[in-house]
């Protein structure tokens, strides 16, 4: 399966949500260019395993991790290449180096943070770009530390750092809507202070506008927070119902739309369904 699209159409946050929820494995390539056709601009590669981010690179020769090791003075370029060759075909290079006593757990974490969190988070600011996801791509052990992060965690960090929200403008929640939690109890992701404050309002009673007033925040800030907590699956936006259907008084000519309780639970008879199906079959 391959999916291609423009980031304006389907944002990186939505892609990550899709890949995580679908437990997708494969390679996501981000092209920093306005059109999908060559000449190609800068390319970025993010590998997923079962919906988790396992590696990222901005080069296609699978030498990103080796280069990073060398830049940090952890291992010479040549030594790293030699060790990479002796590493088994299905063993992530990072884990192999740890098993050889060349890296410790902290160094591995730092490598992963630099490779994935820092690199991928920066991609959330790519405005004019294309994406391509290839589920048949093989995971590159040479680029893998052996660590992984849920896509939601990366999304949260990426959207926190995002300054230009213009491409997500039409996806931001309505200021007049409210929010409800999608998880029971506490969020399973680490929230920052202001996210926590917004989270406290997930009772479905206050509009975003009201929340913004309570927290003395600009409404767009609250909308951005709600958007990011939504794409990571913590809460959802629900339109605020200022008009309860039961008390609605419609015009007489809209009799059919009168929400009366007697009709609310009405069902349609089986003979009705049978007749309708027979009728529709003639249209096919």
């Amino acid at each position: 399966m391959a999916i291609t699209g423009h980031l304006v159409e389907f944002s990186l946050a939505e892609i990550f949500q899709f890949l995580e929820q679908g437990h997708k494995t494969g390679l996501l390539t981000i092209f920093e260019q306005p059109e999908p056709e060559p000449p190609r601009g800068r390319e970025h590669y993010i590998w997923f395993n079962q919906g988790r981010v396992v590696a990222a690179a901005n080069r296609s020769d699978h030498r990103g991790l080796i280069s990073s090791l060398s830049q940090r003075g952890l291992l010479g370029d040549r030594a790293a290449s030699r060790l990479a060759q002796s590493c088994g075909p299905k063993v992530p290079l990072g884990l192999y180096l740890k098993s050889q006593g060349i890296l410790d757990a902290e160094q591995l974490k730092l490598l992963f943070y630099t490779q994935v969190m820092r690199q991928v988070c920066a991609l959330f600011s790519v405005v004019d770009g294309w994406f391509h996801f290839d589920s048949k791509a093989v995971l590159p052990c040479d680029e893998m530390t052996g660590l992984s992060a849920p896509a939601t965690e990366v999304t949260l960090a990426g959207l926190r750092a995002l300054r230009n929200w213009s491409t997500l403008e039409d996806k931001l929640p309505d200021p007049m809507s409210t929010i409800v939690a999608l998880v029971e109890g506490q969020p399973n992701l680490r929230l920052n202070a202001v996210e926590w404050q917004v989270w406290e309002f997930t009772g479905g009673k206050d509009s975003l506008q009201t929340i913004a007033q309570h927290l003395q925040l600009p409404i767009h800030k609250v909308q951005e927070i709600v958007f990011r907590l939504n794409v990571v699956g913590l809460l959802e936006e629900v339109p605020m119902m200022v008009l309860e259907a039961e008390t609605t008084h419609q015009h007489d000519e809209e009799d059919e739309l009168q929400p009366t309780s007697s009709l609310h639970d009405s069902t349609v008879s089986q003979s009705f369904l049978n007749n309708l199906v027979s009728f529709l079959k003639h249209k096919v």
Binding site: E9, Q250, P259
Partner: peptide
């Protein structure tokens, strides 16, 4: 609010989605 009135009265409903418009 119109959605609300419509859906509360519906016996069943269909969500139409354009398959080529991920936006």
């Amino acid at each position: 609010f119109m959605w609300d009135i419509l859906i509360r009265r519906a016996h069943a409903y269909m969500l139409l989605v354009a398959a080529h418009r991920p936006r």
